[in-house]
Amino acid sequence: MTELDELYQEVILEHSKAPRNYRRPEATNRSAEGYNPLCGDRFTVFLDVEGDAIRDIGFQGSGCAISRASASMMTQSVKGKSKEEAARLFEEFHRLVTGGAKTPEERTILGKLAAFAGVSKFPVRVKCATLAWHTMQSALEGKQDVVSTE
């Protein structure tokens, strides 16, 4: 597989074309906007949080295939998780896209998200892959400002 094929894995292309949870959940009680000024990617992440649990999550906005797929797959993987679990996933995901988490054992926690490993060969695309995650974190922390990757 070329580095390009590794970046644009089938599952990533598929999510970028048909993103999941592309909506604003009715019971949204937290949201945040994320913006990558370099490429114009802009997403809003909506959360329905009760106590420590992420009951529902959705997103809307526009961006490149990597950022869209990442947002879509993030919503699937954190839905129903606790805030702490979501934060831990982000940590692992970040390690993955920046070249860490090389062994299958390290990647088990990531599940399908391991498809983003190819991003590590494209350092300028790390921001695309992590934009939605940063935005979710900011929504969880209840920050009001637009999250910027710059």
């Binding site: 000024p37 490429c39 990617d41 695309r125 695309c128």
Partner: peptide, 22 residues
Amino acid sequence: HVHPHDLGTILDREGVAIRTGH
């Protein structure tokens, strides 16, 4: 079919340097 940023990455692998963004 393709966002400018993805296009920029794919073109780069072909040796073609363009600018993408605003």
